[in-house]
Amino acid sequence: MWQGIEMLFQHPSVNVKYILDGLFFGSIFALAAYGLALVWGVMNLKNLAQGDLVILGGYFTWYFQSALGWNPILTLPIVMFIMFFFGWAMYALVVKWVIDKDLFTSLLATFGLALVIQQFINLVFGPETQTAVSELGKIKFYLFGGRIVVPEIRVVGVLLCAAVAVALIVFMKRSRTGQAIRATAQDARAAKVMGINTDRVYALTFSINSAICGAAGALVAMMFLVQPFYGITYSIRSFVIVTAAGLGNLPGVITAAFGLGVLEGYANNILGASYQQFIVVFALVVVLVWRMIRLRKARMVLE
């Protein structure tokens, strides 16, 4: 433990790397978490298949590169497009029928979906781990006496994360459809009375989420690797981020995702790699307890 802390001072450039990596990796988790925040906020759906959508997107990118020889960066919009319609189909086939049922039903249904997607990937693409190679270069610079190498694909991830965030905010605030989505999120029944086709709004929301997951997946395939059963990691991470940030809080989601990314790097250094994941969940517990204490002040009893 002390050795790790000592290293942070002896090699200051290590700090820069942890912070940069935290931002880079955080941006991917932020993408998946946006999508979750969206479906959770608008449809009140806790989508347990979130991570599996990410992995499916990654497999498309891998497939387009390895079988068709396409440049993986260029597959990104194509994957988003495919995943959008995949999301639509998923909504029409499954989600639509459970959306107004109780929490337990929708949890079970999306968990079932997760299993189906996993096995689908496993049957179609096989169980091996796969990676797509982005063929992008690296940015190198020196800081605090250490060399820092940043693969450009990671920068693409951050930019994409920012672009999707901005696009989402503008879409939600300015467009009629965005307004309709927000109206439905506020009060579905009232929105229906006002002539909003809530069913379409739900379908659209779920498809947008699916497309965002697809984008995250494409980046995952280019930065890390994909395996049919890896979805759960991204599901858990999204849930942690959204829960910690609070619903409908996009800046919160981004901050939480980046914060967790940086925290992980330091946890690895100071406590050891085996605590890297523990610290993520521990951070969630701390946030929830802290929030409970804060809410306690506001809590009152009706006499």
Binding site: V14, K17, Y18, D21, F25, Y230, T233, E264, G265, Q276
Partner: peptide, 10 residues
Amino acid sequence: DLSDMSATLT
């Protein structure tokens, strides 16, 4: 579920 070891490589 390792898919990243950049902290270790740092």
